[in-house]
Design a binder for these strands. Sequence first.
DNA 1: TTAATACTGAACTATATGGTTCTGTATTTA
DNA 2: TAAATACAGAACCATATAGTTCAGTATTAA
Lengths: 118, 118
Amino acid sequence: MVLYLSSTLDLSFAALSDATRRGIIDQLGRGDASITSLADKFQMTLTGMKKHVQVLERAGLVVTQKVGRVRTCKLGNHGLKAEAEWIEAHRRLFEIRFEALDEIIGEMKREDSDEPEN
Amino acid sequence: MVLYLSSTLDLSFAALSDATRRGIIDQLGRGDASITSLADKFQMTLTGMKKHVQVLERAGLVVTQKVGRVRTCKLGNHGLKAEAEWIEAHRRLFEIRFEALDEIIGEMKREDSDEPEN
DNA sequence: TTAATACTGAACTATATGGTTCTGTATTTA
DNA sequence: TAAATACAGAACCATATAGTTCAGTATTAA
């Protein structure tokens, strides 16, 4: 289980690290969209938007298809499963650290109340 | 709920987009570590490791403290909550798209079986 | 007190990101 | 057929990342 050898996580987390791209995902959740309509919505040049879409595509989060002169973008069949799993597994890890900390604090308090109040 | 205006998600997802940094988090889950020990573990120069730790620190995932000449790194009280929430919310979004797709496929099949087999 | 350790910071390299403009091409629409 | 639309791609810019080396400082150990 060598989680840190996955380059798909590299690509998807990198894709999600930009607010515009997270916004594109939100938007595509409401319905498919052309590059132009996304560029309008996010006030960006067509070329700029195309690059964002490419980053999302490389990560498998978005798929596109060109029909005629319009390239339509939609959410991919990615599902964010591996990402959710990584995050959940490591949330537990962070929690464990705090539980350990709580124990230490608990012990300190117990020791404290054991001591005679002089 | 303008999710795409959060720069904390930018920082944390960017921090998580590198395999070495995800590995550092794994390692710190097993116990606190100095920059040197992490550099050894990940076969990297001290300076290179310090940069990775700084990225994790900026994202709040790791905290460090220098005692004497040793800087000790530990997991921060971050908890990956916002990240988990974003991912979970959007997993549902991807699922909805597929449910919609399933419906379409279902309809296609029904239409198919409705048609006389000629 | 000298030597080793652990870091800090500057400087450099190569590559990626996030954006632009400008030019060209294919497809529609009028 | 001519004009408008939608994109593709090259080139450029500034900044960030991922790494290095090299020189310095502060601690600790011998």
